[in-house]
Amino acid sequence: MKKIRAIFIGDVRFDECPVFELNIESNYFEMIIDKEIRYKKEVVIKDDDFIIFNVEDDIATVIKKQEIE
């Protein structure tokens, strides 16, 4: 199953780095471990401090943000 996920660059300074997954139905990137923490898709796309990935079959590939707009 293909997933679109994102991480915030600044979070890599810490021991754990939250991962956000795009919920296609709501159009929000939701934190996987706490779905109450979420960002609108447009916010993540426009923020240069987020890196977005396609994840499929346990392979993560960085994608260009315009590919998901």
Rank of each mutant, 00 (worst) to 15 (best):
N23L: 01
E56V: 05
E30V: 01
F14V: 02
F20T: 03
A6V: 05
I68A: 07
E69P: 05
D34G: 00
F14M: 04
I7L: 08
K40I: 03
I4C: 05
I52S: 01
A60D: 15
T61K: 14
K2E: 13
V43M: 09
N54I: 08
L22K: 05
I32Y: 07
K40D: 12
N27K: 13
D58T: 02
F50C: 04
I37N: 13
E56Y: 11
D47H: 07
R5K: 15
D57N: 15
R5D: 02
V55E: 15
I9H: 06
K35R: 14
D11G: 00
D47P: 07
K65N: 12
N27Q: 13
D49F: 14
E42M: 02
G10Q: 10
I45Q: 09
V62W: 03
I9C: 02
V12R: 11
A60C: 10
I68S: 08
E25R: 10
S26E: 14
F8M: 08
K2N: 08
E67R: 10
D11I: 04
D47R: 04
P18I: 07
F53S: 03
D11Q: 12
D15A: 05
C17S: 03
I51T: 12
Q66H: 15
E36K: 13
Q66L: 09
V44M: 09
R5Y: 01
I33C: 02
L22D: 03
I37Y: 14
V55A: 02
V44H: 09
M1S: 14
K2M: 11
D57A: 06
F8H: 15
E16T: 15
